[in-house]
Amino acid sequence: MPHPQSFTCSSPPVDQVGVIERAKRFQTRSVKTQSKMQGLRMILSMIDLTTLEGMDTPGKVKQLCFKAQHLHDSTAGLPTVAAICVYPNFVALAKRALGDSKIKVASVATAFPSGNTSLEIKLDDVRMAVDQGADEIDMVISRGKFHAGEFGYVYDEIAEVKNACGPSRLKVILETGELGTFDNVRKASDIAIAAGGDFIKTSTGKIKPAATMPVTLVMLEAIRDHYFKTGEMVGMKPAGGISNAKLALQYLIMVQETLGDSWLDNHWFRFGASSLANDVLMQIVKQNTGAYQSADYFSID
């Protein structure tokens, strides 16, 4: 494995104005009728339905697992979501509740959301989730170490966690809202990819701003450059703040135009969201019936 310093040094500078302008362009596209329906179904299949609250209960997690399998039964032919995202102590329960539905269980770990604890505890956290059957681990990077310039530490930590994941796929949360600049986001993306992250993810959802289009674009470009260099694909997961279908469609356009069709699959692209699913469902029913919908007729999320 090459020394991490070489990656951080080779991160190209990000043209902030250019990125923001480019991200804006994706928001001017008009997606209608058939393409829209296809996009909406794709969004549903890419959602990591998430509950990460201190007040989560077994009942809440079971309800979420049921929703994941039965998004809106009165509309035929809907996909299920990609995964359920919960805290480690709910992994076993979610696994049981999802049964053989093929919906994955993702668990946050490594002292989510702050990541401020020792490496041993973080690794235990990861192993616990993996032992209980988590298919995917969402880790947070040590932002404090990153800002202190200890990029080697951040790199090593991700590599260790990846090791502890075993066969489970690793998503690396950069928490872009705490990184400050696009240059930092790019640097953190490069470190996470080099250290073996299967996915890079924008945010925990606990910090504002969470996922934005420009910041996601910076990360997508890091993935693209890595792909050009090595031929390896890395997944992307924007999380937090994507709550309506229109915005999610714009994200898909951005992914397609930055990375290409291969990434338009829930193996490589996810939305971390909770309220997005209902908005997409309302749009789908609107397309089917011609009438704008009310949240009163959809399950609570």
Binding site: G290, A291, Y292, Q293, S294, A295, D296, Y297
Partner: peptide, 8 residues
């Protein structure tokens, strides 16, 4: 029409 059909 859209107002009348709107479920919300």
């Amino acid at each position: 029409t859209h107002a009348a059909k709107h479920l919300d």
